[in-house]
Design a protein around this nucleic acid. Structure first.
Lengths: 166, 166
DNA sequence: AACAATTTTCATTTTTTATTGAAAACTCAG
DNA sequence: CTGAGTTTTCAATAAAAAATGAAAATTGTT
């Protein structure tokens, strides 16, 4: 396999994987492209590489900035903006965990707490409350796990898990 | 909040959450409905409750069966099929981890291994290989973690994490 | 201030994904 | 074997999500 083939394969695969996780294909592809580029790239290069429009490129670059997965780089004497990706994959994992926790887990916990307060006079309502309580436990577990990832240093986290799997 | 309000809120929220994770809304709603139902339900009841077509109901029920999240129940003297959900939320988590590992993580590991074999003569190719190697590590970590969840007994897993967070 | 380079926005279009509903297939009692 | 009850399939349709591209806004230079 040549380098260019490998590169394309990676960008393509990353995009496909992302869609399975509710992330849009282009955003993942831009991220992949920047991850494997040793140099910051400008919007035109990205558009050309991935064959996408300016608007599309711009919006997804903005989203990646919001997620803290890429950064701007200004070259002196140039007016264009250049972008480069966070290359530390552990840091990326922490960043994604942090955002998803905030955007997804936190609201769910809130709703579950609210639902726990329902009256339990019928068998149906009892079953309901039982399920909600169980879900709360598992969501709490997920929340703690994400928290661990967010706060962890790479070595600490690896160490903990090596202990578990020893 | 009345019980019916709570029920609807739950089904609705579960559906919304699911879409953020790349799972379709209806599938999650059917699952939620069955989770909180003390009795197995037939297709007509599900169609009525969620206001969906027979084809839609049938397809998503089949998918849920494939995922091992619901089961069939045949009532004696009845020709209709009834469905009930796995209520053990830990078992659900294990089941989902198992399926996603098989469908998503495993193929990614395969591709990454393949990409590692690329020639590294240019700086660009060197950077590429470095990134791929790093991603491999993190994906391997995710794979191990999912494996732990899959194989774990509830108490063992909880115990391990309590240790980590003590 | 005028202008050219660049970025951002957003109404429109395209693509993708989900849903419908009716026909076909299946199942089983009589 | 027949036919009513039930499930499954799938082409057509609808809904949702993503992408386009050109106009508007912004930025920095002279």
């Amino acid at each position: 396999m040549t380098f260019d083939e490998a590169k394309n394969r990676f960008i393509q695969s990353w995009g496909t994987l992302a869609t399975q996780w509710g992330i849009n294909r282009t955003m993942a592809q831009i991220h992949a492209l920047l991850m494997i580029s040793p140099e910051p790239l400008d919007t035109d290069v990205i558009m050309e590489s991935l064959q996408i429009s300016r608007g599309n490129a711009n919006m997804n670059l903005r989203d990646l900035l919001d997620w803290g997965l890429i950064y701007k780089h200004l070259k002196m004497g140039e007016r264009k903006e250049f972008f480069f990706a966070e290359k530390d994959v552990w840091k990326i994992a922490r960043q994604v965990a942090k955002e998803r926790r905030r955007r997804e887990i936190a609201p769910v916990i809130e709703i579950l707490e609210e639902l726990k307060t329902v009256e339990t006079n019928t068998p149906e309502a009892k079953e309901f409350q039982k399920v909600i309580t169980e879900i709360s436990k598992v969501v709490g577990f997920a929340d703690n796990t994400m928290n661990a990832v967010i706060k962890a240093e790479e070595n600490w986290l690896m160490g903990q898990f090596l202990k578990v799997f020893r």
